[in-house]
Design a protein around this nucleic acid. Structure first.
Ligand SMILES: [Zn+2]
Ligand SMILES: [Zn+2]
Ligand SMILES: [Zn+2]
Ligand SMILES: [Zn+2]
Lengths: 142, 142
DNA sequence: AATCTAATGAAAAATCATATCATTAATAGA
DNA sequence: TCTATTAATGATATGATTTTTCATTAGATT
């Protein structure tokens, strides 16, 4: 996919053979992978640990990878198609489906129809500026 | 708070002086804390690392602690008042407010009014059973 | 081809999390 | 209260994960 190359270039990075292998690996992993899992999966393909860490970060940056928490609370990285999407994780087999709709109240009800999943729960985290910080012009970080 | 003691007992644990210190620490940290931060904050109070890890888990179990991701993607644990609530993280100062309403589409709009935050984004993760697994009686884990 | 720039991965170092276990503290019953 | 029982604590060791460093290699540009 040449699209990928362009997206990597846009963030000042090259789309190399190793990075392609990392991306392919995630595309072929419906339950996602933890980083250690990705590392060991590509050990024989001679892709180094450092490269995997860097590529995971880059793929997230260009919106091709997101994460979910597995049953142990560990980050599991999953290929996705857009920067903003809502993954749904199967609590039994761990398979992840992507939901790109973002009408939230409608979402939970429609989600079952769209994905075939039985929704049992969710984790929702908002980001924004607090009242104090909304007033400020510049930014001090936490 | 004696309520806390009861909640700990309910999960077969004792509410000890150290656990109280851990809880107090989180109650006094509006931006939440990573575990290493909590460890070093309580080093002089002579609360051990192991106790902190265990207490963080227990507080989550009884619904007094939840987590958010900070700007680096790290888990930051934040005191909360109920098992299911939606934290909102300030992208400038990191302060976290708790939103206990869970009507999702309404939520994002009302959130600003309730908390004074300007909502900029969110991370939403659903959990449920996929179509295949909904049919099965028992469970194979991922 | 020559030059420049970024990527790679081995190794080391740092960080984070868990497991073990002797000791101490809290609870419950006599 | 005293004692028996059970759980909590934290020092230490261990293991896992993540980051840093840097000599080498590969890709892009001219
Ligand atoms: Zn499933
Ligand atoms: Zn959304
Ligand atoms: Zn703020
Ligand atoms: Zn909710």
């Amino acid at each position: 996919m040449d699209d990928l190359k362009r997206q990597f270039n846009r963030i000042g990075m090259r789309y190399t053979a190793q990075r392609s292998l990392v991306h392919q690996l995630f595309l072929g992993s419906p339950c996602g992978l933890t980083i250690p899992e990705a590392v060991s999966a590509l050990k024989d393909r001679r892709v180094g640990e450092t490269t995997i860490y860097r590529t995971v970060r880059a793929l997230q940056e260009i919106g091709r990878l997101c994460w979910v928490h597995d049953h142990k609370g560990e980050h599991r990285y999953v290929a996705c198609g857009s920067r903003h999407s809502h993954p749904i994780v199967c609590t039994v087999c761990g398979k992840v489906a992507e939901c790109r709709t973002c009408e939230l109240s409608v979402l939970e009800k429609l989600l079952g129809l769209e994905t075939g999943y039985t929704v049992e729960g969710h984790h929702l985290e908002f980001y924004g500026k607090c009242a104090d910080c909304s007033r400020l012009p510049a930014q001090e970080t936490q």
